[in-house]
Amino acid sequence: MSGALLLPLRRLGRGVGLGLGLGLGLCLGGCQPAGLQPEAGLNPRLAVPGDDSSPSLGNRGLAWIAPGLGGHRQVRWLDLASGLGSPLPGLNRPDAQPISVSVDGQGQRFALVRRLEGRTELLVYERSLALLRPIPLLPAGVPGQVALSADGRWLAVQVSRGGAWQVELLALP
């Protein structure tokens, strides 16, 4: 085949190759599921000196345990839309050590396990009323990690009884 005929074919081949490459690139960029993308605007607000733990995500915000003033650990709340923290009146005590926290989807009800005066207790906090309610465990046990459903109506708690861990479900009104 003559060179005059090959040249257009080569150009056509290059064009098709370039198009396929671009299409594949666009598909990989637009169609391929990306992994984790850091919340660059919010993460600096979580970065405080000291250990942070027990994250719990609702639709509107994040609850977690962080060092507070004076080094006491406390439950904190970050609103995802504004990037600002909000006070949780009546929830934190300087003489209590929070262990596990979980929040409902609206950020209105919190479940908390904390250690206070040598006891480990399970509580539910209603943010709109600033009310804290202890939840007794019957028979008695030591609560550990806690989880609240997003609708705020169910609470699952890890309880130690007789040296064994059990998971217990509680319906909340």
């Binding site: 861990w165 509680l170 319906a171």
Partner: peptide, 19 residues
């Protein structure tokens, strides 16, 4: 509050619940 306990034969420690 209505307490329910998860029990299954042969199951040991149960931890880290999520709903």
């Amino acid at each position: 509050g209505c307490a329910q306990r998860f029990q299954a034969p042969g199951l040991g420690d149960q931890q880290e619940p999520a709903l």
